[in-house]
Amino acid sequence: YKELDVHLRRMESGFGFRILGGDEPGQPILIGAVIAMGSADRDGRLHPGDELVYVDGIPVAGKTHRYVIDLMHHAARNGQVNLTVRRK
């Protein structure tokens, strides 16, 4: 696995990616679609299928989808987010 730290600034449309997973206990949280011309797309480092490991330094492995969405909403209010993702 390769770990990447990604800092994104929120645009009008948000951070520019969707979150998948976390529906079953222990299921990984994954990056879903990366939205064209969004913040994540312009940054270029997030890829669909990347596993989300940390959101603003908070571990999200094994957490629920709702928990991660709530963290992302909090980050959106701050206008930026630091993510750590893991890729095979």
Score class of each variant (00 low, 15 high):
60 V>M: 10
76 A>E: 15
75 A>F: 03
65 H>C: 10
85 V>C: 05
32 G>V: 05
85 V>E: 02
70 D>T: 11
41 D>W: 11
80 Q>H: 14
23 D>A: 12
11 M>G: 15
31 I>F: 00
58 I>F: 11
16 G>C: 01
71 L>H: 05
77 R>V: 12
64 T>H: 10
41 D>R: 05
15 F>Y: 05
39 S>D: 05
72 M>E: 02
71 L>P: 00
27 Q>M: 10
27 Q>S: 13
51 E>R: 05
52 L>A: 01
31 I>L: 03
30 L>Q: 12
85 V>D: 02
50 D>C: 00
75 A>L: 03
24 E>D: 09
5 D>G: 08
86 R>Q: 04
4 L>V: 09
2 K>M: 11
76 A>G: 11
7 H>E: 15
67 Y>L: 09
13 S>E: 14
64 T>A: 08
61 A>F: 14
59 P>E: 12
78 N>S: 09
18 R>Y: 07
64 T>K: 10
73 H>V: 09
63 K>C: 11
7 H>R: 11
64 T>S: 12
66 R>K: 14
37 M>R: 15
82 N>W: 12
44 G>E: 05
79 G>F: 05
12 E>C: 08
25 P>S: 08
14 G>P: 00
52 L>N: 02
21 G>Y: 07
81 V>M: 08
6 V>W: 00
9 R>Q: 14
16 G>S: 01
75 A>C: 08
59 P>M: 14
68 V>L: 05
21 G>V: 08
16 G>K: 02
8 L>I: 07
14 G>R: 01
85 V>R: 00
65 H>T: 11
6 V>D: 03
17 F>R: 00
1 Y>K: 05
67 Y>Q: 11
60 V>L: 09
43 D>G: 05
36 A>I: 04
68 V>P: 00
3 E>D: 11
8 L>Q: 01
16 G>M: 00
22 G>R: 08
41 D>G: 09
25 P>N: 06
59 P>N: 14
36 A>V: 06
35 I>A: 14
54 Y>R: 14
61 A>E: 14
35 I>G: 09
45 R>S: 09
26 G>I: 03
41 D>V: 04
26 G>E: 08
7 H>D: 11
30 L>F: 14
43 D>I: 04
19 I>H: 00
47 H>S: 12
15 F>W: 08
86 R>C: 06
57 G>R: 08
26 G>W: 06
84 T>V: 12
26 G>K: 06
78 N>A: 11
25 P>W: 07
48 P>D: 07
29 I>D: 02
38 G>F: 02
20 L>G: 09
13 S>F: 05
81 V>Y: 02
88 K>L: 12
51 E>L: 05
27 Q>Y: 07
15 F>I: 00
10 R>E: 10
72 M>C: 06
18 R>S: 15
28 P>K: 12
19 I>W: 03
56 D>S: 03
35 I>T: 15
36 A>Q: 10
14 G>M: 01
7 H>W: 10
63 K>Y: 07
59 P>T: 10
5 D>W: 07
38 G>Y: 00
6 V>E: 04
44 G>I: 03
31 I>E: 03
83 L>Q: 00
87 R>A: 10
49 G>T: 03
35 I>N: 13
50 D>K: 01
42 R>F: 07
55 V>M: 09
3 E>L: 11
76 A>D: 15
12 E>H: 09
78 N>K: 12
11 M>P: 04
63 K>L: 08
67 Y>N: 11
74 H>N: 13
20 L>R: 13
2 K>S: 08
12 E>D: 14
38 G>H: 04
54 Y>T: 14
32 G>K: 09
6 V>H: 01
67 Y>S: 10
23 D>G: 10
83 L>W: 02
60 V>P: 01
28 P>F: 01
32 G>R: 06
82 N>F: 10
66 R>D: 14
18 R>V: 07
54 Y>C: 14
7 H>P: 07
45 R>A: 07
53 V>D: 04
4 L>G: 00
27 Q>C: 09
44 G>L: 04
62 G>N: 10
66 R>Q: 13
55 V>H: 00
5 D>V: 11
56 D>L: 01
72 M>A: 00
37 M>F: 10
24 E>H: 12
60 V>A: 04
57 G>V: 00
88 K>V: 15
48 P>S: 11
36 A>F: 06
86 R>S: 08
13 S>H: 13
11 M>D: 15
84 T>G: 08
2 K>D: 05
83 L>A: 00
34 V>Y: 02
76 A>T: 12
41 D>E: 12
33 A>R: 12
52 L>Q: 02
21 G>F: 10
87 R>C: 07
7 H>V: 11
82 N>A: 10
66 R>P: 12
28 P>H: 04
66 R>H: 11
63 K>A: 11
49 G>S: 04
65 H>N: 15
45 R>I: 07
84 T>F: 05
38 G>S: 09
9 R>T: 14
67 Y>A: 11
29 I>Y: 12
70 D>I: 06
68 V>E: 00
21 G>L: 07
84 T>N: 06
14 G>D: 10
68 V>H: 01
35 I>S: 14
88 K>G: 15
69 I>N: 15
11 M>N: 15
67 Y>F: 12
10 R>A: 15
58 I>W: 10
31 I>H: 01
77 R>P: 04
57 G>M: 05
72 M>S: 00
48 P>W: 05
9 R>K: 15
9 R>C: 09
34 V>K: 05
65 H>P: 06
71 L>I: 10
32 G>W: 04
35 I>C: 13
56 D>P: 01
2 K>T: 10
74 H>L: 13
1 Y>R: 00
16 G>E: 02
16 G>I: 01
60 V>H: 01
14 G>V: 01
31 I>D: 02
30 L>G: 03
71 L>G: 01
30 L>M: 12
68 V>I: 10
23 D>F: 10
63 K>V: 07
27 Q>D: 15
70 D>W: 07
52 L>F: 03
32 G>N: 09
42 R>V: 13
78 N>T: 10
75 A>H: 05
36 A>C: 08
43 D>N: 07
25 P>H: 07
4 L>C: 04
10 R>W: 13
82 N>Q: 12
28 P>M: 04
88 K>N: 11
39 S>R: 03
59 P>C: 15
28 P>E: 06
47 H>P: 01
63 K>T: 12
80 Q>W: 12
81 V>F: 02
41 D>H: 11
57 G>I: 00
76 A>L: 13
65 H>S: 13
18 R>G: 09
13 S>Y: 08
52 L>P: 01
2 K>N: 10
38 G>E: 06
5 D>R: 11
46 L>D: 01
12 E>W: 05
61 A>I: 14
82 N>P: 00
36 A>T: 10
27 Q>H: 11
46 L>R: 00
25 P>E: 10
3 E>V: 13
46 L>I: 10
30 L>S: 12
45 R>Y: 04
17 F>I: 15
80 Q>Y: 15
45 R>F: 05
77 R>N: 11
5 D>A: 10
60 V>R: 00
43 D>Y: 04
24 E>M: 09
65 H>V: 09
82 N>G: 09
42 R>M: 12
28 P>N: 05
65 H>E: 08
60 V>I: 12
62 G>F: 05
50 D>Q: 04
42 R>D: 06
44 G>P: 04
2 K>V: 07
50 D>T: 01
7 H>K: 13
77 R>F: 11
32 G>Q: 09
12 E>T: 10
6 V>M: 03
38 G>R: 02
27 Q>V: 10
80 Q>E: 15
80 Q>N: 12
60 V>W: 01
69 I>S: 15
45 R>H: 08
13 S>D: 15
81 V>P: 00
77 R>D: 14
65 H>I: 13
44 G>R: 06
66 R>M: 11
82 N>E: 10
19 I>V: 09
42 R>G: 05
67 Y>K: 12
70 D>K: 13
37 M>Y: 11
85 V>K: 03
52 L>W: 03
69 I>T: 15
27 Q>G: 10
65 H>G: 09
15 F>S: 00
43 D>Q: 05
10 R>H: 15
5 D>E: 13
52 L>R: 01
76 A>H: 14
20 L>N: 14
62 G>A: 06
14 G>K: 03
24 E>W: 09
68 V>G: 00
62 G>K: 07
41 D>Y: 09
6 V>I: 14
39 S>Y: 03
61 A>H: 10
62 G>Q: 07
72 M>F: 10
18 R>D: 15
26 G>S: 08
34 V>D: 06
84 T>I: 10
4 L>R: 02
5 D>L: 08
1 Y>T: 07
58 I>R: 11
23 D>S: 10
27 Q>W: 06
17 F>C: 04
72 M>W: 01
88 K>H: 05
3 E>R: 07
82 N>V: 09
39 S>H: 04
51 E>T: 06
61 A>Y: 11
6 V>K: 02
43 D>P: 03
79 G>K: 08
83 L>K: 02
52 L>Y: 01
41 D>N: 06
7 H>G: 07
48 P>T: 13
23 D>T: 11
84 T>S: 09
56 D>A: 02
86 R>K: 06
55 V>G: 01
27 Q>N: 11
42 R>A: 09
55 V>T: 01
31 I>Y: 00
52 L>E: 03
50 D>S: 00
69 I>F: 07
61 A>L: 15
26 G>V: 02
14 G>A: 02
47 H>Y: 09
1 Y>L: 04
51 E>W: 04
